[in-house]
């Protein structure tokens, strides 16, 4: 089972019937010239990358831009179109007074599998009190949270909110809450590794490709910034493959992750085993 845990479906054709919405998505996400993709194309891409499942992540930036970029209902629609291929996460705006209620609805009625938040864009620190109602819902329903971490090249993002060290209290105070630091917290990948060492409930995904090509960047991060042995020996149960498609290159990243020298058993965990535990609990 090969799972991409970090995919943004904002430009999938079935949820882009409205040209104004599509234009808003290009501007808000700072992704341009990519058009919209019919699902058959997405499935072709998955086949080329040898991927079995994609975890679809929405964005609810209502406070910042006036509306959700991709709604939870749209995620549910996509999952319903291909339930054997798609895993759907919910979005939430922590500043919305009804956020916890809406998240509960997303878990119980829309059957979504976790929560995605973006501290840099939504302008909150991971330990802010404003997040507590959402965390309480996730803990009650045993659902994980994927947090954007590290740099973001979306507009209006403050990196200070998403530095890995900011997640320490959250991880310590909620040992039963599984959290993923997306993009491995780049450029602070050693901070991310430190948190994963301290807290088994902290995961990271590999959705990082900020310079060079997929292999070159992975080789830089996973051979030099942190040695491959740190993951292969110590953090092997906490790293999940993610591509951050469509910003980054899913097919080449899925290939590059297999060429870094991990043991086969570690690679299987990164490709899917850890994602299943992150989603369902150990």
């Amino acid at each position: 089972m090969f799972i991409d845990m970090h995919v943004h479906p904002a430009f999938y054709e079935p949820i882009n019937e409205n040209a104004e919405i599509e234009e808003m998505r290009h501007n808000v996400l700072n992704i341009h010239k990519n058009g919209t993709a019919p699902l058959v194309h997405i499935f072709n891409q998955m086949k080329c990358a040898s991927l079995d499942r994609l975890c679809l992540l929405p964005e609810d930036y209502t406070t910042q831009v006036g509306q959700a970029v991709v709604t939870n209902e749209e995620i549910q629609r996509l999952v319903d179109l291909a339930p054997d291929k798609f895993i759907g996460f919910a979005g939430a705006d922590p500043y919305d007074e009804r956020a916890a209620e809406k998240l509960e609805y997303a878990f119980t009625q829309l059957k979504l599998s976790g929560l995605k938040l973006h501290p840099s864009r939504q302008h909150f620190y991971p330990n802010d009190a404003i997040l507590r109602p959402l965390i309480e819902v996730c803990e009650r329903y045993n659902k994980p949270i994927i947090f954007h971490s590290g740099v973001s090249i979306e507009p209006d993002t403050d990196t200070k909110y998403a530095r890995p060290i900011e997640f320490e209290e959250l991880a310590a105070n909620h040992p039963n809450l599984r959290i993923c630091l997306a993009h491995f917290g780049w450029p602070w990948v050693q901070e991310t590794a430190m948190l994963m060492l301290k807290f088994p409930n902290v995961y990271a995904d590999t959705g990082l490709l900020y310079f060079d090509n997929a292999y070159e960047f992975y080789e830089r991060v996973f051979h030099h910034d942190i040695p491959v042995t740190w993951i292969d020996r110590s953090l092997r149960h906490q790293v999940m493959f993610g591509s951050n498609n469509p910003r980054f290159e899913q097919i080449r990243m899925a290939d590059a992750i297999t060429k870094l020298g991990f043991r086969d058993s570690t690679l299987e965990l990164i490709k899917g085993g850890n994602a299943l535990e992150f989603l369902n609990g150990r």
């Binding site: 992704i31 990519n34 060079d212 080449r252």
Partner: peptide
Amino acid sequence: PYSHARILSDYGSTAG
């Protein structure tokens, strides 16, 4: 090691 391997700002995505 091709030069065309970087984030293109007018696409907001990686050129790989």
